[in-house]
């Protein structure tokens, strides 16, 4: 049997669902008051831009985790996507954008097929493709020695560096994808199938939910989105940096969990994930504001924070 969280009363329900949002608001208010520069438009724009890449990846991760799975390959796919975009940019905008989406999407598809058809553990399958994608990346870049540059005048750079009222394009891409993701999750049959698959897989099969198809789709989505995030980053950096994205899959998992998605599957929201990204990025930003603090402490603080959030969720759920 699946243990179901007992809903004691409406107030804890709200707190539980909005716990991360409340924390985010508090963090922002305190940071604003403590560091005058935090509230500056420039800083907020930067914050949003930095968060947008992670949001794109974490949307895919949210779907995967709600089905009860995990995708460890996204960090490698993110880096691979960036390099492929940079390499492809010499053949024009379309090549720069579609190449990473297709390649990373196909790797995601293979993940999904292996997990759904052969019943292998998602952890193992995606760990294998984490290694595979990172290896492929190193092979096509001569072990990282060869960094592909994107011509500064290409339209592709505009995708990463262009702005509206100073807000970078990637922010809008992430926002549109988040809205779309939320809509797909809550307002389509596919979304319902995602919840059913993670909530009670055996029952879902008996209820006629296409469980295998659903799994294949979420991993394909996750791979494609990781590739897109990589392409956006490459466009922003004007080059395919090979060393990025190491351990990014863990950041993505962390923000999804902080956002209230159950790691065991069956429950979660895109909005929560976006809030989770906001929290992590605000913490990092504040640490940068302090300046004197070694940037390595970012991870320490993020880690402690993740623990606090998870413990709080647990307590509130009682």
């Amino acid at each position: 049997m699946i243990t179901t969280p007992t809903v004691t009363n409406a107030r804890t329900k709200v707190l539980q669902r909005q716990g991360a949002a409340v924390a985010l608001v508090l963090m922002v208010v305190v940071s604003w008051l403590t560091f005058p520069r935090f509230g500056s438009l420039d800083n907020l724009r930067d914050l949003a831009l930095q968060g947008s890449f992670l949001v794109v990846i974490a949307i895919g991760m949210t779907f995967v985790i709600i089905t009860g799975g995990i995708d460890l390959s996204v960090g490698s796919l993110y880096a691979l996507g960036g390099v492929l975009a940079a390499w492809g940019s010499q053949y024009g905008f379309l090549a720069a954008l579609t190449l990473p989406l297709v390649v990373c999407g196909v790797i995601g598809l293979v993940n999904g097929l292996l997990i759904a058809r052969t019943n292998m553990a998602p952890f193992i399958v995606t760990l294998a493709s984490l290694l595979f994608a990172r290896g492929l990346l190193l092979a096509i870049t001569d072990e990282g020695a060869n960094t592909y540059q994107i011509p500064g005048d290409s339209a592709f750079v505009e995708l990463g560096r262009g702005t509206v009222f100073g807000f970078g394009y990637p922010i809008f891409v992430a926002a549109v994808l988040a809205v779309l993701g939320g809509m797909i999750l809550n307002r389509t049959s596919f979304g319902q199938n995602v919840f059913a698959t993670g909530g009670a897989e055996q029952s879902a099969v008996l209820l006629g939910v296409p469980v295998a198809k659903t799994k294949v789709l979420v991993y394909t989505m996750s791979g494609t989105l990781a590739g897109l995030a990589g392409a956006l980053t490459a466009a922003y950096l004007q080059s395919g940096v090979t060393v990025i994205g190491v351990g990014l899959e863990l950041d993505a998992i962390a923000v999804v969990v902080i956002g209230g998605t159950l790691l065991t599957g069956g429950m979660g929201t895109i909005l929560g994930t976006v809030i989770g990204v906001g929290l992590i990025k605000v913490i990092q930003n504040v640490i940068n504001q302090i300046g004197t603090l070694d940037s390595n402490y970012q991870s320490v603080v993020s880690g402690v924070f993740l623990l606090i959030v998870v413990v709080l969720q647990r307590i509130l759920r009682r």
């Binding site: 699946i2 008996l206 209820l207 159950l262």
Partner: peptide, 8 residues
Amino acid sequence: EVNLVPLM
């Protein structure tokens, strides 16, 4: 046993 999804 009830074969539905308890969390939904």
